[in-house]
């Protein structure tokens, strides 16, 4: 294994994920991005919820918090507020973030605390055996949608933008170089950054949706995605049915802890003056 991985892993591989699962590819891109960012592991906290992808924190040699289902962001909020100088990365699955953690997610977007949320979207609840999530495409089959889901899905990136996140990007496990770059940019952004990563679950999603092999899902992701730079030059008809990847939104807004400290400073000036 290349040194870049050895440096950040805990030396407890093999991981628990199934053959062809995209979680390992995300972890690999994260490791390379983390190495390039040159952060101090002692001052970095990895937080995750519950689900297959949330097991990622068990493999990373950081301060790691494997929390409860949907609750990663509140824990991360407490960590970051206590130690604003820490680098905080939050890993969540699609059900974890968008269903049970949906309320925490929109409020974290609104608060704009300086941390990076990586949503690994494999379109399904994998750990419990393939039930549809709020990100499962309408019509897809799942163990609780045997005739196809009649539940409309979220576009989690649009939701994040609407809720006030100041950096929103989408990557995928086919375009690994792009994903690595997005993780770096997300961390370097001051404020709450969100990356949705389109990922693969051959066992629980692929097999039910005519993509049984790992490469079927890889090819699906390759074909369905289109980089924002290209999409921007295309007409609405041309990009119909495509999923746009890249940095979708970036804006500047006051960061929560900076706003808090500005309030504290103001009070001190009032006291002394």
């Amino acid at each position: 294994m290349r040194e870049v991985y050895q440096k950040i892993f805990r030396d407890n591989l093999p991981h628990i994920w199934c053959a062809g699962c995209g979680n390992g590819i995300v972890m690999s891109a994260f490791a390379r991005a983390y190495d390039k960012l040159g952060l101090d592991k002692d001052k970095t906290v990895g937080v995750s919820g519950i689900g297959c992808s949330s097991r990622i924190t068990g493999y990373l040699d950081l301060n790691t918090l494997h929390t409860a289902h949907g609750r990663a962001l509140p824990f991360a909020t407490g960590v970051k507020m206590t130690r604003p100088e820490f680098a905080v990365f939050v890993f969540m699955g699609d059900g974890d973030c968008a269903a049970i953690g949906g309320n925490h997610f929109i409020h974290a977007c609104r608060r704009n605390m300086d941390m990076t949320a990586i949503i690994i979207n494999n379109y399904i609840y994998g750990m419990t055996g393939g039930q549809f999530s709020p990100l499962t495409p309408f019509g897809s089959k799942a163990s609780t949608a045997p005739y196809g889901s009649v539940d409309r899905n979220f576009d989690i990136c649009s939701l994040a933008i609407g809720a006030g996140a100041t950096f929103v990007a989408r990557g995928d496990v086919y375009h690994t170089k792009q994903l690595e770059k997005l993780i770096i940019e997300a961390h370097e952004h001051k404020g709450f950054s969100v990356i949705e990563v389109l990922s693969t679950c051959p066992i629980s999603y692929g097999r039910r949706n005519k993509m049984p092999k790992p490469m079927d899902l890889m090819n699906y992701i390759k074909d369905v995605t289109i980089a924002k730079e290209r999409a921007d030059k295309m007409t609405a008809e041309e990009i119909a049915g495509k999923i746009v990847t890249g940095v979708l939104h970036q804006s500047a807004a006051v960061e929560y802890n900076e706003a808090y400290m500005a309030m504290v400073e103001k009070l001190e000036v009032g006291k002394n003056g």
Binding site: R2, Y5, F9, G20, C21, G24, S28, T176
Partner: peptide, 11 residues
């Protein structure tokens, strides 16, 4: 291959 191997087998 290395970047897409989900299991860190390849270097």
């Amino acid at each position: 291959c290395e970047e897409h191997c989900p299991d860190f087998c390849i270097e």
